[in-house]
Design a protein around this nucleic acid. Structure first.
Length: 424
RNA sequence: GGAGCGGUGGCCGAGAGGCUGAAGGCACCGGUUUGCUAAACCGGCAUACGGGGUCAACCUGUAUCGAGGGUUCGAAUCCCUCCCGCUCCGCCA
């Protein structure tokens, strides 16, 4: 969340931030309201604390008088009145403070200056890698997959619903090869610590990484246990250090996690949902980094390059997009999307989204670091990106590596993990 | 699921209605001293939010002893609910 102090000291920057996202109409009035609440809140704080100070001195005087054997009844009575006053003011304070806090949770992060303003049409293609095959020159992945027996979509729909994928045989194995290859790459070459984390997390964790309260309808929830299925391993991994103060010397921290991810995709029914394009449950390797504020822009480039490396080693043509403010995620200050080209469906598919959250998540989750012994704790910057999301990566492989006879060549780096060089 | 015990500052650990923002120790920082390392001694050492201010270092108020409520003039201390940990029993694997 943004710093509450910004409401008082930099309301203009906040307004400019939401304007660049194209949501001034929606968030502007919230900022106005927050400014009023902040003034109200501080006046009430003063009033409450004045009375508490008076009560504290009175209480001490009562203690003194009783010890001296004097009658303190009168003072006790007046202190009791103060207490009633305090209770009333505290109710007021809780109301304005509560509303103020709720607004803070609703306000998106302010994007960095280099992020273009406007909606997705203003996204910038930063770079392109590889030679995409002509759109429509090959069959869409679902046709190849069906012919080769890699996916069983009807049975997935039968046991869980559409958007729940059953991988079979070499389809399942391809996924496992992808997992082992990527985790090995990130741990061996790029220095990430491998983690395995819970797939269900509590509400505090979801708030910490800013999935909640805004996007509750997109989450699967186990209401009996007050747990949510994670939409990405970003949630458990980033929250690992919630309410902790890290030793500055350990930064930057780099963690990776392979996990299943669960998304209800409410509101996107029927949109790009064929085959592996948009599913409710999928596997992904996530990269998470924690850094100092000064270092986070460089860490962001580094993390994005790690995700890109996966695509390059796989030999899949792809491009990097700098998302415009309006297309940048709620909590992100800057996001690169990596898109792989899938010639069968003729589309660029988002396979990774690499974001620098600044201190937005760290503030919510209270993840701090001490720069050096004796110094004050500061919020870390959190970053994460997928490296990569598997269904769309598999879609890209099945299309890019498709041969005229309908077989699919296995990318070279996967062969040691997959066990053969072609799926036919 | 049942029973018992426990949760206090960066860490360990006292305290059992007012004298406790919290003894003592460790760690850490500054100083003195010994030719280096080490030791000894002295001093310092929480966070958040208000207010004031020649506004990053100063003064002042409030809150914080797992969380949230309650009793009281006053709660780390008493009561209730919840969370977490440990031990034992039961249940499931």
């Amino acid at each position: 969340m943004i710093d509450g102090r910004m409401v008082r000291e930099q309301a203009g920057a906040l307004r400019e931030g939401v304007r660049r996202r194209g949501s001034l109409d929606k968030h502007g009035p919230l900022i106005d309201r927050a400014e009023r609440l902040d003034r109200e809140r501080r006046l009430t704080i003063q009033a409450v604390e004045e009375r508490k100070a008076a009560r504290n001195t009175a209480s001490q005087e009562v203690a003194r008088m009783k010890k001296a054997g004097e009658n303190a009844d009168e003072l006790v009575a007046s202190a009791r009145e103060l207490g009633a006053d305090i209770a009333r003011l505290e109710t007021e304070l809780a109301a304005s403070q509560g509303e103020f806090d709720a607004i803070l949770l609703e306000l998106p992060n302010v994007t960095l200056p280099e992020v273009p303003e406007g909606d997705a049409t203003k996204n910038v293609i930063v770079s392109t890698w590889g030679e995409p095959r002509a759109a429509g020159s090959v069959k869409p992945h679902w046709e190849v997959a069906e012919k080769l027996g890699l996916l069983d979509l009807p049975r997935g729909a039968k046991i869980s619903g559409s958007g729940f994928i059953v991988y079979r045989g070499r389809g399942a194995k391809l996924q496992r090869a992808l997992m082992n290859f990527s985790v090995d790459l990130h741990t061996r070459e790029f220095g990430y610590e491998e983690t395995q984390v819970p797939l269900f997390v509590n509400r505090d964790a979801m708030i910490g990484t800013s999935q909640l309260p805004k996007f509750e309808e997109d989450m699967y929830a186990l209401r009996d246990d007050a747990l949510f299925a994670i939409p990405t391993a970003e949630v458990p991994v980033t929250n690992l250090f919630r309410e902790e103060i890290l030793d500055g010397a350990t930064l930057p921290l780099a963690l990776t996690a392979f996990s299943a991810c669960f998304r209800r995709e409410a509101g996107s029914a029927g949109k790009d949902t064929r085959g592996l394009l948009r599913v409710h449950q999928f596997d992904k390797v996530e990269l998470v980094r924690f850094s100092t504020p000064e270092d986070s822009p460089a860490q962001h480039e580094l993390l994005t390059s790690h995700a890109e490396q996966v695509l390059q080693r796989l030999g899949i043509p792809h491009r990097r997009l700098l998302l415009a403010a309006g297309d940048t995620g709620f909590g992100s200050a800057k996001t690169y999307d990596l898109e792989a080209f899938a010639p069968g469906v003729g589309q660029w598919l988002e396979v990774s989204s690499c974001s620098n959250f600044g201190e937005f998540q760290a503030r919510r989750a209270s993840i701090r670091y001490r720069p050096a012994s004796g110094e004050k704790p500061r919020f870390v910057h959190t970053l994460n990106g997928s490296g990569l999301g598997f269904p769309r990566t598999i879609a890209a492989i099945l299309e890019h590596y498709q041969n005229p006879d309908g077989s699919v060549t296995v990318p070279e780096v996967l062969r040691p993990y997959f066990g053969s060089d072609v799926i036919r």
